[in-house]
Design a protein around this nucleic acid. Sequence first.
DNA 1: AAGAGGCCCTGATAGC
DNA 2: TGCTATCAGGGCCTCT
Length: 287
Amino acid sequence: MPELPEVEVVRQSLAKRIINKKIRKVIVRNRNLRFKLPHNFENYLKNKKISKIGRFSKYLILYFSDNSYCLIHLGMSGTIHIINKNKKNKITNLSFYNSPTLPKKHNHIEINFEEFKIIYNDPRRFGFFQLIKSTSDLRNKFLHLGPEPFNKKFNSKYVYSYFYNKKKNIKSFLLDQNFVSGIGNIYASEILFMSKIKPTKNVNSLSKIKCRSIILNSKKVLLNAINKGGSSIRNFKDAKGKIGNFQKNFKVYQREGLNCKRVHCKGVIKKKIISKRSTFYCSLCQK
DNA sequence: AAGAGGCCCTGATAGC
DNA sequence: TGCTATCAGGGCCTCT
């Protein structure tokens, strides 16, 4: 699923189309997402004008002109597609699957605007839409989340003291949204490669310098991914069997058995399951 | 309180 | 061809 960079790219692309637009009609085909859509979902959104689209961590936030909100999470497999009306179903694809056409199944939510509509597709249904009635309710939704890597609160003092007396490996902490929010399974491996730290390394044995390195590389890796339009992309075969051609920029993710990309390093990329998730690292240069 | 593990769900792929 | 097992970008919940 999208991690912070992919969600940000979706936000930017959506913003170009939906700011100051009014929702005309909402159609729900399957209410059973991660959280069941309320019965008034369609009516609540109808005639709402979108004043802004924001993002925190992996959450998208639709801001309505009446100061209410809609929180969107894409889960593992959620994608958003824009379909222009009156132009022979031309699709602007905001998913991270290189599919030229709208998927046939799992198009759960359709939000109609005057000249186009957006479709929420999600095979696994781990994603969700939530209506938020007030600014304080919105704030409460994010209370339990740690700072984003870009936030100045994510500094070495915070990280170093957070790790004090903790007995868990660093990979798990990068995935722990209470500690830092926005990093997912792909970028966790990439960040640790950049920092030359083995994912199994226990955090209580990390030096301040290593903590700084993690902070720096978290920002670097995520920003780089945003600038590349989201790099965490799986190949996807469309209905005609054509393979997606998005480039991968991964240094370690899904590179098990291949040579380390670091100059002069003779290491080989290993794969290890850490807290139920695949983790990739170089056998030599990550210590 | 911290940490480990189960669970939600569908689809692609590998192996027999 | 068809079966089964495993894995997939997340995060909530429960148990110890």
